[in-house]
């Protein structure tokens, strides 16, 4: 049975004649970092990675949170973790944030922080040939100089392969 489907596709050149409104919103937000991430970011400023332990499930939560989503209780027991970990997964990106093409790829990775039972966070790998990145590779944080740190995830410049680690 033949159906007639509605819709009128436009060609790229037709679309150039489209009515456009350019609008640059003044979108600046001052976010509260909250009970948990505030301490995490202050830790980064001091060159330390902090996790938090849930007394219910005993997990070390990193990134830390004020409550455990599984046990649904407040968590308060801060633990200092090493600034080393392993690559859980990675990508080799030839796109920048706005999807522009770039020649030198960025290597985002999920880093399992040592001592956190497989938990960790998103960061970037550096000082490594993209072809040589491996799952489970040992990595270590490369920190900005103390004076330049401001309590942000970018206080860690990137994670680099740990010599002797594998």
């Amino acid at each position: 049975m033949a159906k007639e489907y509605p819709g009128t596709p436009l060609k790229s050149k037709d679309f150039k004649k489209a009515l456009k409104t350019k609008y640059t919103p003044s979108a600046e937000y001052a976010w509260s970092a909250g009970q948990a991430i505030n301490s995490f970011l202050n830790g980064l400023k001091e060159g330390r990675i902090l996790g938090i332990k849930c007394r219910g499930c005993k997990r070390i939560l990193v990134p830390p949170r004020a409550f455990c989503e599984e046990c649904f209780i407040s968590v308060e027991d801060w633990v200092e973790l090493k600034d080393t970990g392993r690559v859980n997964t990675f990508a080799i990106s030839y796109l920048d944030t706005m999807a522009n093409r770039i020649k030198k790829p960025i290597i985002p990775a999920v880093i399992e922080i040592d001592g956190a039972g497989g938990n960790g966070f998103l960061h970037i790998l550096g000082e490594v040939d993209p072809k040589k990145v491996k799952f489970g590779m040992k990595v270590k944080a490369v920190w900005k100089p103390a004076k330049e740190r401001k309590g942000d995830i970018t206080d860690i410049k990137y994670f680099k392969p740990l010599k002797g680690g594998d």
Binding site: Y29, W31, A33, G34, I37, F40, L41, P63, N88, T89, F90, A91, I92, S93, L95, D96, T97, M98, A99, I106, P108, A109, V110, F121, L122, H123, I124, F135, D152, I153, T154
Partner: peptide, 25 residues
């Protein structure tokens, strides 16, 4: 995440690439 991810300059394709690579591995 507005507090600990966005300043790394992520791209939407990243999360798919990270997930796909993990699945393949």
């Amino acid at each position: 995440d507005n507090l600990i991810e966005r300043n790394l300059g992520p791209n939407l394709v990243w999360i798919f690439a990270l997930e796909m690579n993990r699945y393949m591995k």
